[in-house]
Design a binder for these strands. Structure first.
Lengths: 221, 221
DNA sequence: TTTTGTGTGTGACCTGGGTTACAGACGAAG
DNA sequence: CTTCGTCTGTAACCCAGGTCACACACAAAA
Protein backbone atom coordinates (compact mmCIF):
# COMPACT_ATOMS: atom_id res chain seq x y z
CA UNK A 1 0.00 0.00 0.00
CA UNK A 2 1.37 3.39 -0.99
CA UNK A 3 1.45 6.01 1.68
CA UNK A 4 1.33 9.27 -0.11
CA UNK A 5 0.74 12.56 1.58
CA UNK A 6 -2.92 12.07 0.71
CA UNK A 7 -3.33 9.53 3.46
CA UNK A 8 -1.71 11.90 5.86
CA UNK A 9 -4.05 14.71 4.90
CA UNK A 10 -7.09 12.49 5.07
CA UNK A 11 -6.27 11.64 8.67
CA UNK A 12 -4.91 15.03 9.63
CA UNK A 13 -6.73 17.67 7.63
CA UNK A 14 -5.01 20.18 9.84
CA UNK A 15 -1.77 19.55 8.04
CA UNK A 16 -3.14 20.81 4.73
CA UNK A 17 -1.99 24.27 5.59
CA UNK A 18 1.60 23.23 6.18
CA UNK A 19 4.28 25.39 4.66
CA UNK A 20 5.85 23.59 1.68
CA UNK A 21 9.20 23.12 3.36
CA UNK A 22 7.73 21.24 6.31
CA UNK A 23 5.54 19.29 4.01
CA UNK A 24 8.39 18.16 1.88
CA UNK A 25 10.37 17.06 4.89
CA UNK A 26 7.42 15.23 6.32
CA UNK A 27 6.65 13.35 3.15
CA UNK A 28 10.13 12.10 2.54
CA UNK A 29 9.91 8.34 2.37
CA UNK A 30 12.48 8.03 5.13
CA UNK A 31 10.17 9.76 7.55
CA UNK A 32 7.73 6.90 7.25
CA UNK A 33 8.05 4.57 10.21
CA UNK A 34 6.85 0.99 10.16
CA UNK A 35 6.87 -0.67 13.53
CA UNK A 36 5.98 -4.26 14.36
CA UNK A 37 3.46 -5.36 16.96
CA UNK A 38 4.75 -5.06 20.46
CA UNK A 39 7.18 -2.26 19.80
CA UNK A 40 7.66 -0.02 22.78
CA UNK A 41 6.93 3.43 21.47
CA UNK A 42 7.94 5.01 24.72
CA UNK A 43 8.77 3.90 28.22
CA UNK A 44 8.60 5.53 31.58
CA UNK A 45 11.31 8.15 31.73
CA UNK A 46 12.65 8.19 28.21
CA UNK A 47 12.85 11.20 25.95
CA UNK A 48 11.28 11.56 22.53
CA UNK A 49 12.22 13.19 19.30
CA UNK A 50 9.09 14.37 17.58
CA UNK A 51 5.37 14.52 17.32
CA UNK A 52 4.05 11.19 16.03
CA UNK A 53 1.29 11.14 13.43
CA UNK A 54 -0.27 7.72 13.47
CA UNK A 55 -1.37 6.57 10.01
CA UNK A 56 -2.56 3.10 10.87
CA UNK A 57 -2.56 0.73 13.78
CA UNK A 58 -3.15 1.33 17.44
CA UNK A 59 -1.00 2.11 20.43
CA UNK A 60 -1.97 1.20 23.95
CA UNK A 61 -0.75 3.33 26.79
CA UNK A 62 -0.53 1.32 29.97
CA UNK A 63 0.63 1.23 33.52
CA UNK A 64 2.27 -1.94 34.80
CA UNK A 65 2.73 -3.19 38.32
CA UNK A 66 5.73 -5.11 39.56
CA UNK A 67 3.35 -8.02 40.20
CA UNK A 68 2.76 -8.25 36.47
CA UNK A 69 -0.65 -6.68 36.31
CA UNK A 70 -1.41 -4.14 33.67
CA UNK A 71 -3.95 -1.41 33.20
CA UNK A 72 -4.90 0.39 30.02
CA UNK A 73 -4.88 4.16 30.41
CA UNK A 74 -5.95 4.92 26.87
CA UNK A 75 -5.43 4.09 23.24
CA UNK A 76 -4.09 6.08 20.36
CA UNK A 77 -5.60 5.22 17.01
CA UNK A 78 -4.86 6.56 13.57
CA UNK A 79 -5.79 10.20 13.29
CA UNK A 80 -5.11 10.68 16.95
CA UNK A 81 -1.65 11.38 18.12
CA UNK A 82 0.08 10.47 21.26
CA UNK A 83 -0.18 13.52 23.37
CA UNK A 84 2.25 12.04 25.84
CA UNK A 85 4.91 12.71 23.32
CA UNK A 86 4.00 16.32 22.83
CA UNK A 87 3.81 16.62 26.55
CA UNK A 88 7.42 15.62 26.55
CA UNK A 89 8.23 17.88 23.62
CA UNK A 90 7.00 20.71 25.73
CA UNK A 91 9.32 20.34 28.62
CA UNK A 92 7.72 17.83 30.90
CA UNK A 93 10.26 15.12 31.24
CA UNK A 94 9.06 11.73 32.40
CA UNK A 95 6.26 9.70 30.95
CA UNK A 96 5.14 7.58 33.87
CA UNK A 97 3.55 5.13 31.47
CA UNK A 98 4.45 2.86 28.58
CA UNK A 99 3.22 3.01 25.02
CA UNK A 100 3.11 -0.23 23.09
CA UNK A 101 2.10 -1.07 19.53
CA UNK A 102 -0.99 -3.28 19.69
CA UNK A 103 -0.85 -3.80 15.95
CA UNK A 104 1.76 -3.08 13.32
CA UNK A 105 2.09 0.67 13.07
CA UNK A 106 2.55 3.09 10.26
CA UNK A 107 3.46 6.56 11.36
CA UNK A 108 5.24 9.70 10.43
CA UNK A 109 7.09 11.80 12.92
CA UNK A 110 6.99 15.54 12.88
CA UNK A 111 10.38 16.73 14.11
CA UNK A 112 10.31 18.75 17.29
CA UNK A 113 11.39 21.97 15.66
CA UNK A 114 8.62 21.79 13.08
CA UNK A 115 6.16 20.95 15.78
CA UNK A 116 7.12 24.06 17.74
CA UNK A 117 6.85 26.18 14.62
CA UNK A 118 3.47 24.77 13.68
CA UNK A 119 2.02 25.22 17.11
CA UNK A 120 3.19 28.81 17.07
CA UNK A 121 2.10 29.80 13.62
CA UNK A 122 -0.81 27.66 12.68
CA UNK A 123 -3.91 28.27 14.72
CA UNK A 124 -5.79 25.21 13.53
CA UNK A 125 -2.86 22.98 14.34
CA UNK A 126 -2.66 24.58 17.73
CA UNK A 127 -6.34 24.00 18.23
CA UNK A 128 -5.86 20.41 17.19
CA UNK A 129 -3.12 19.87 19.76
CA UNK A 130 -5.04 21.56 22.54
CA UNK A 131 -8.00 19.45 21.69
CA UNK A 132 -5.93 16.30 22.05
CA UNK A 133 -4.82 17.43 25.48
CA UNK A 134 -8.29 18.35 26.60
CA UNK A 135 -9.76 15.10 25.43
CA UNK A 136 -7.06 13.12 27.16
CA UNK A 137 -7.59 14.91 30.43
CA UNK A 138 -11.34 14.41 30.30
CA UNK A 139 -10.87 10.72 29.58
CA UNK A 140 -8.38 10.28 32.38
CA UNK A 141 -10.69 11.95 34.86
CA UNK A 142 -13.44 9.64 33.73
CA UNK A 143 -11.12 6.70 34.19
CA UNK A 144 -10.25 7.74 37.72
CA UNK A 145 -13.92 7.87 38.57
CA UNK A 146 -14.56 4.46 37.11
CA UNK A 147 -11.65 2.79 38.81
CA UNK A 148 -12.42 4.43 42.13
CA UNK A 149 -16.17 4.01 42.25
CA UNK A 150 -17.45 1.51 39.74
CA UNK A 151 -17.58 -2.20 40.21
CA UNK A 152 -15.77 -4.45 37.84
CA UNK A 153 -18.91 -5.93 36.33
CA UNK A 154 -20.03 -2.45 35.33
CA UNK A 155 -16.68 -1.62 33.85
CA UNK A 156 -16.56 -4.93 32.02
CA UNK A 157 -20.02 -4.41 30.58
CA UNK A 158 -19.01 -0.98 29.37
CA UNK A 159 -15.84 -2.34 27.85
CA UNK A 160 -17.71 -5.05 25.96
CA UNK A 161 -20.19 -2.54 24.60
CA UNK A 162 -17.36 -0.31 23.43
CA UNK A 163 -15.87 -3.04 21.29
CA UNK A 164 -17.29 -3.90 17.94
CA UNK A 165 -18.59 -7.37 17.37
CA UNK A 166 -17.58 -9.97 16.95
CA UNK A 167 -15.40 -9.49 19.98
CA UNK A 168 -12.28 -11.57 19.59
CA UNK A 169 -10.12 -11.24 22.60
CA UNK A 170 -8.96 -13.33 25.50
CA UNK A 171 -10.17 -12.91 29.03
CA UNK A 172 -6.62 -12.07 29.92
CA UNK A 173 -6.60 -9.16 27.48
CA UNK A 174 -9.88 -7.83 28.85
CA UNK A 175 -8.53 -8.12 32.37
CA UNK A 176 -5.51 -6.07 31.41
CA UNK A 177 -7.66 -3.33 29.97
CA UNK A 178 -9.50 -3.19 33.26
CA UNK A 179 -6.49 -3.52 35.50
CA UNK A 180 -7.81 -6.79 36.89
CA UNK A 181 -6.97 -10.46 36.47
CA UNK A 182 -8.16 -13.19 34.17
CA UNK A 183 -10.02 -15.30 36.74
CA UNK A 184 -12.26 -12.46 37.75
CA UNK A 185 -13.11 -11.57 34.20
CA UNK A 186 -13.92 -15.21 33.48
CA UNK A 187 -16.11 -15.34 36.55
CA UNK A 188 -17.96 -12.18 35.61
CA UNK A 189 -18.40 -13.24 32.01
CA UNK A 190 -19.80 -16.52 33.19
CA UNK A 191 -22.27 -14.51 35.23
CA UNK A 192 -23.22 -12.45 32.20
CA UNK A 193 -23.67 -15.63 30.19
CA UNK A 194 -25.89 -17.12 32.88
CA UNK A 195 -28.12 -14.06 32.63
CA UNK A 196 -28.26 -14.43 28.88
CA UNK A 197 -26.38 -11.22 28.27
CA UNK A 198 -23.56 -12.78 26.29
CA UNK A 199 -22.57 -16.01 24.59
CA UNK A 200 -19.04 -17.18 25.15
CA UNK A 201 -16.63 -19.04 22.91
CA UNK A 202 -12.92 -19.46 22.75
CA UNK A 203 -11.50 -16.02 22.17
CA UNK A 204 -14.86 -14.66 21.25
CA UNK A 205 -17.80 -13.04 22.94
CA UNK A 206 -21.17 -12.40 21.41
CA UNK A 207 -23.39 -9.76 22.93
CA UNK A 208 -26.93 -11.13 23.18
CA UNK A 209 -28.57 -8.32 25.12
CA UNK A 210 -26.91 -4.98 24.58
CA UNK A 211 -29.76 -3.19 26.29
CA UNK A 212 -29.31 -5.03 29.55
CA UNK A 213 -25.56 -4.65 29.37
CA UNK A 214 -25.96 -0.95 28.83
CA UNK A 215 -28.23 -0.77 31.84
CA UNK A 216 -25.66 -2.60 33.91
CA UNK A 217 -22.92 -0.28 32.70
CA UNK A 218 -24.91 2.85 33.42
CA UNK A 219 -26.03 2.23 36.98
CA UNK A 220 -24.97 5.13 39.14
CA UNK A 221 -23.99 4.23 42.67
CA UNK B 1 -4.03 43.87 51.07
CA UNK B 2 -3.47 45.62 47.76
CA UNK B 3 -3.43 43.47 44.70
CA UNK B 4 -1.41 45.35 42.21
CA UNK B 5 -0.16 43.91 38.98
CA UNK B 6 3.05 43.13 40.88
CA UNK B 7 1.41 40.24 42.65
CA UNK B 8 0.19 38.97 39.35
CA UNK B 9 3.65 39.12 37.84
CA UNK B 10 5.25 37.52 40.84
CA UNK B 11 2.99 34.51 40.44
CA UNK B 12 2.89 34.52 36.67
CA UNK B 13 6.20 35.83 35.41
CA UNK B 14 5.03 34.77 31.98
CA UNK B 15 2.65 37.68 31.90
CA UNK B 16 5.44 40.22 32.02
CA UNK B 17 5.57 40.24 28.27
CA UNK B 18 1.91 41.08 27.88
CA UNK B 19 1.04 43.77 25.39
CA UNK B 20 -0.02 46.93 27.21
CA UNK B 21 -3.61 46.74 26.07
CA UNK B 22 -4.12 43.29 27.57
CA UNK B 23 -2.27 44.32 30.66
CA UNK B 24 -4.45 47.32 31.21
CA UNK B 25 -7.59 45.26 30.78
CA UNK B 26 -6.32 42.60 33.12
CA UNK B 27 -5.36 44.99 35.86
CA UNK B 28 -8.61 46.87 35.94
CA UNK B 29 -9.92 46.58 39.48
CA UNK B 30 -13.16 45.07 38.19
CA UNK B 31 -11.30 42.09 36.81
CA UNK B 32 -10.32 41.09 40.34
CA UNK B 33 -12.56 38.34 41.62
CA UNK B 34 -13.00 37.56 45.28
CA UNK B 35 -14.85 34.32 45.93
CA UNK B 36 -15.85 32.87 49.30
CA UNK B 37 -15.05 29.37 50.50
CA UNK B 38 -17.21 26.75 48.92
CA UNK B 39 -17.90 28.60 45.72
CA UNK B 40 -18.39 26.31 42.79
CA UNK B 41 -15.90 27.52 40.22
CA UNK B 42 -17.24 25.14 37.65
CA UNK B 43 -19.58 22.22 37.51
CA UNK B 44 -19.91 19.23 35.28
CA UNK B 45 -21.21 20.47 31.94
CA UNK B 46 -21.07 24.22 32.29
CA UNK B 47 -19.25 26.62 30.06
CA UNK B 48 -16.62 29.15 31.12
CA UNK B 49 -15.65 32.63 30.09
CA UNK B 50 -11.93 33.01 30.51
CA UNK B 51 -8.64 31.73 31.73
CA UNK B 52 -8.45 32.03 35.51
CA UNK B 53 -5.25 33.25 37.15
CA UNK B 54 -5.35 32.26 40.78
CA UNK B 55 -3.70 34.83 43.05
CA UNK B 56 -4.43 33.24 46.37
CA UNK B 57 -6.40 30.37 47.84
CA UNK B 58 -6.89 26.86 46.58
CA UNK B 59 -9.41 25.10 44.39
CA UNK B 60 -10.14 21.41 44.67
CA UNK B 61 -11.27 19.53 41.61
CA UNK B 62 -13.36 16.54 42.58
CA UNK B 63 -15.59 13.78 41.37
CA UNK B 64 -18.69 12.99 43.39
CA UNK B 65 -20.77 9.85 43.50
CA UNK B 66 -24.52 9.75 43.92
CA UNK B 67 -23.91 7.91 47.20
CA UNK B 68 -22.26 11.03 48.55
CA UNK B 69 -18.68 9.96 48.32
CA UNK B 70 -16.11 12.28 46.93
CA UNK B 71 -12.68 11.96 45.41
CA UNK B 72 -10.05 14.61 44.90
CA UNK B 73 -8.65 14.64 41.36
CA UNK B 74 -6.24 17.49 41.91
CA UNK B 75 -5.80 20.92 43.39
CA UNK B 76 -5.14 24.27 41.86
CA UNK B 77 -3.07 26.61 43.98
CA UNK B 78 -1.98 30.16 43.35
CA UNK B 79 0.41 30.36 40.44
CA UNK B 80 -1.23 27.36 38.87
CA UNK B 81 -4.26 27.81 36.76
CA UNK B 82 -7.18 25.58 36.21
CA UNK B 83 -6.40 23.87 33.02
CA UNK B 84 -9.90 22.47 32.93
CA UNK B 85 -11.04 25.89 32.04
CA UNK B 86 -8.62 26.31 29.21
CA UNK B 87 -9.60 22.89 28.07
CA UNK B 88 -13.06 24.27 27.76
CA UNK B 89 -11.84 27.48 26.16
CA UNK B 90 -10.33 25.34 23.50
CA UNK B 91 -13.40 23.59 22.31
CA UNK B 92 -13.90 20.64 24.58
CA UNK B 93 -17.27 21.09 26.07
CA UNK B 94 -18.05 19.25 29.27
CA UNK B 95 -16.02 19.25 32.43
CA UNK B 96 -16.92 15.93 34.00
CA UNK B 97 -15.76 17.23 37.37
CA UNK B 98 -16.47 20.00 39.83
CA UNK B 99 -14.17 22.75 40.99
CA UNK B 100 -14.73 24.14 44.46
CA UNK B 101 -13.03 26.88 46.44
CA UNK B 102 -11.37 25.27 49.46
CA UNK B 103 -10.43 28.67 50.82
CA UNK B 104 -11.45 32.20 49.92
CA UNK B 105 -10.11 32.90 46.46
CA UNK B 106 -8.57 35.87 44.83
CA UNK B 107 -8.26 35.58 41.10
CA UNK B 108 -8.16 37.47 37.85
CA UNK B 109 -9.72 36.16 34.71
CA UNK B 110 -8.07 36.50 31.37
CA UNK B 111 -10.87 36.89 28.84
CA UNK B 112 -11.07 34.16 26.23
CA UNK B 113 -10.12 36.39 23.34
CA UNK B 114 -6.95 37.56 25.07
CA UNK B 115 -6.13 34.04 26.01
CA UNK B 116 -6.32 32.95 22.38
CA UNK B 117 -4.18 35.85 21.33
CA UNK B 118 -1.56 35.20 23.97
CA UNK B 119 -1.31 31.53 23.21
CA UNK B 120 -0.84 32.41 19.58
CA UNK B 121 1.66 35.18 19.90
CA UNK B 122 3.59 34.63 23.07
CA UNK B 123 5.77 31.57 23.06
CA UNK B 124 6.50 31.58 26.77
CA UNK B 125 2.83 31.84 27.60
CA UNK B 126 2.16 29.00 25.23
CA UNK B 127 4.86 26.97 26.87
CA UNK B 128 3.33 27.77 30.23
CA UNK B 129 -0.07 26.52 29.17
CA UNK B 130 1.29 23.37 27.58
CA UNK B 131 3.22 22.73 30.70
CA UNK B 132 0.07 22.94 32.78
CA UNK B 133 -1.58 20.41 30.53
CA UNK B 134 1.35 18.07 30.58
CA UNK B 135 1.66 18.21 34.33
CA UNK B 136 -2.01 17.58 34.79
CA UNK B 137 -1.95 14.56 32.53
CA UNK B 138 1.06 13.09 34.27
CA UNK B 139 -0.60 13.58 37.65
CA UNK B 140 -3.83 12.02 36.53
CA UNK B 141 -2.05 8.98 35.17
CA UNK B 142 -0.27 8.66 38.46
CA UNK B 143 -3.59 8.91 40.25
CA UNK B 144 -5.10 6.16 38.12
CA UNK B 145 -2.23 3.90 39.04
CA UNK B 146 -2.58 4.63 42.70
CA UNK B 147 -6.30 4.12 42.81
CA UNK B 148 -6.10 0.96 40.76
CA UNK B 149 -3.13 -0.73 42.38
CA UNK B 150 -2.22 0.78 45.70
CA UNK B 151 -3.78 -0.06 49.00
CA UNK B 152 -5.43 2.61 51.02
CA UNK B 153 -2.86 2.58 53.81
CA UNK B 154 -0.16 3.37 51.26
CA UNK B 155 -2.15 6.15 49.75
CA UNK B 156 -3.01 7.55 53.16
CA UNK B 157 0.62 7.51 54.23
CA UNK B 158 1.57 9.35 51.07
CA UNK B 159 -1.17 11.89 51.62
CA UNK B 160 -0.05 12.58 55.17
CA UNK B 161 3.53 13.07 54.07
CA UNK B 162 2.44 15.49 51.39
CA UNK B 163 0.76 17.77 53.90
CA UNK B 164 2.74 20.16 55.99
CA UNK B 165 2.59 19.80 59.71
CA UNK B 166 0.83 20.36 61.83
CA UNK B 167 -1.84 18.53 59.90
CA UNK B 168 -5.20 19.93 60.83
CA UNK B 169 -7.93 18.11 59.06
CA UNK B 170 -10.72 15.73 59.84
CA UNK B 171 -10.70 12.06 59.00
CA UNK B 172 -13.68 12.79 56.83
CA UNK B 173 -11.69 15.29 54.79
CA UNK B 174 -8.83 12.86 54.35
CA UNK B 175 -11.26 10.19 53.28
CA UNK B 176 -12.65 12.48 50.63
CA UNK B 177 -9.24 13.19 49.23
CA UNK B 178 -8.71 9.47 48.90
CA UNK B 179 -12.16 8.61 47.63
CA UNK B 180 -12.83 6.49 50.70
CA UNK B 181 -14.91 6.83 53.86
CA UNK B 182 -14.27 8.16 57.31
CA UNK B 183 -14.40 4.86 59.21
CA UNK B 184 -11.67 3.32 57.13
CA UNK B 185 -9.39 6.31 57.49
CA UNK B 186 -9.94 6.28 61.25
CA UNK B 187 -9.15 2.59 61.35
CA UNK B 188 -5.98 3.01 59.34
CA UNK B 189 -4.83 6.00 61.35
CA UNK B 190 -5.36 4.03 64.52
CA UNK B 191 -3.14 1.37 63.02
CA UNK B 192 -0.48 3.95 62.22
CA UNK B 193 -0.71 5.29 65.76
CA UNK B 194 -0.34 1.79 67.19
CA UNK B 195 2.89 1.43 65.22
CA UNK B 196 4.09 4.74 66.56
CA UNK B 197 4.02 6.38 63.14
CA UNK B 198 1.64 9.16 64.10
CA UNK B 199 0.05 10.80 67.11
CA UNK B 200 -3.62 11.59 66.85
CA UNK B 201 -5.68 14.42 68.26
CA UNK B 202 -8.94 16.02 67.45
CA UNK B 203 -8.56 17.47 63.97
CA UNK B 204 -4.85 17.08 64.10
CA UNK B 205 -2.25 14.52 63.22
CA UNK B 206 1.39 14.62 64.15
CA UNK B 207 3.86 12.59 62.14
CA UNK B 208 6.21 10.79 64.50
CA UNK B 209 8.13 8.65 62.03
CA UNK B 210 8.26 10.14 58.56
CA UNK B 211 10.83 7.61 57.46
CA UNK B 212 8.62 4.64 58.20
CA UNK B 213 5.64 6.36 56.62
CA UNK B 214 7.67 7.03 53.52
CA UNK B 215 8.67 3.41 53.39
CA UNK B 216 5.04 2.39 53.67
CA UNK B 217 4.07 4.81 50.93
CA UNK B 218 6.78 3.64 48.57
CA UNK B 219 6.32 -0.11 48.66
CA UNK B 220 5.85 -1.38 45.13
CA UNK B 221 3.52 -4.31 44.77
C1' DT C 1 -24.37 24.04 83.62
C1' DT C 2 -26.75 21.72 80.12
C1' DT C 3 -27.28 21.16 75.38
C1' DT C 4 -26.02 20.44 70.85
C1' DG C 5 -23.09 19.56 67.13
C1' DT C 6 -19.15 17.83 65.23
C1' DG C 7 -15.40 14.77 65.30
C1' DT C 8 -13.69 10.17 66.65
C1' DG C 9 -13.47 5.01 68.17
C1' DT C 10 -15.02 0.67 67.43
C1' DG C 11 -17.11 -3.75 66.68
C1' DA C 12 -19.99 -6.93 63.74
C1' DC C 13 -20.79 -7.92 59.45
C1' DC C 14 -20.68 -8.31 54.31
C1' DT C 15 -18.93 -8.48 49.82
C1' DG C 16 -16.07 -7.65 45.82
C1' DG C 17 -12.40 -9.13 44.01
C1' DG C 18 -7.61 -11.08 44.20
C1' DT C 19 -4.86 -15.63 44.94
C1' DT C 20 -3.87 -20.38 44.42
C1' DA C 21 -4.16 -24.42 42.33
C1' DC C 22 -5.99 -27.05 39.68
C1' DA C 23 -8.53 -29.59 35.34
C1' DG C 24 -10.38 -29.67 31.13
C1' DA C 25 -10.82 -27.92 26.12
C1' DC C 26 -9.54 -26.53 21.96
C1' DG C 27 -6.43 -25.72 18.07
C1' DA C 28 -2.14 -25.94 15.80
C1' DA C 29 1.91 -28.25 14.77
C1' DG C 30 4.41 -32.45 14.36
C1' DC D 1 -3.05 -39.40 16.01
C1' DT D 2 -0.39 -37.34 19.62
C1' DT D 3 1.60 -33.54 21.72
C1' DC D 4 1.98 -29.09 23.26
C1' DG D 5 0.66 -24.51 24.18
C1' DT D 6 -2.86 -21.37 24.90
C1' DC D 7 -7.35 -20.36 26.67
C1' DT D 8 -11.04 -21.21 29.86
C1' DG D 9 -13.73 -23.04 34.11
C1' DT D 10 -13.95 -23.41 38.72
C1' DA D 11 -13.60 -24.24 43.63
C1' DA D 12 -11.57 -22.90 48.22
C1' DC D 13 -9.85 -19.38 50.47
C1' DC D 14 -8.55 -14.81 52.04
C1' DC D 15 -8.47 -9.99 52.82
C1' DA D 16 -9.12 -4.99 52.06
C1' DG D 17 -12.31 -2.06 52.52
C1' DG D 18 -17.21 -0.56 52.71
C1' DT D 19 -21.65 -0.48 55.66
C1' DC D 20 -24.24 -0.10 59.84
C1' DA D 21 -24.93 1.06 64.27
C1' DC D 22 -23.58 2.56 67.80
C1' DA D 23 -20.99 5.17 72.01
C1' DC D 24 -18.04 8.57 73.40
C1' DA D 25 -15.46 13.02 73.71
C1' DC D 26 -14.77 17.53 73.31
C1' DA D 27 -15.98 22.33 72.29
C1' DA D 28 -18.89 25.99 71.59
C1' DA D 29 -23.26 27.87 72.34
C1' DA D 30 -27.26 28.60 75.11
Amino acid sequence: MENSSDDLFALYPVLRSLPPAVLEELCRPTSLLKLPVGTEIFTERQACQGFPLLLSGSIKVVKNTPSGREMLLYRVESGGSCIMTSSCLLGHSDYSARGIAETPLLMRVLPATFFEKLVAENSSFRRFVFHLFAERIAELMQLVEEVAFHRLDQRLAKLLLAKNEPIRSTHQALAEELGSVREIVSRLLKGFAAQGLVALGREQIELLDRKALKQLADVRR
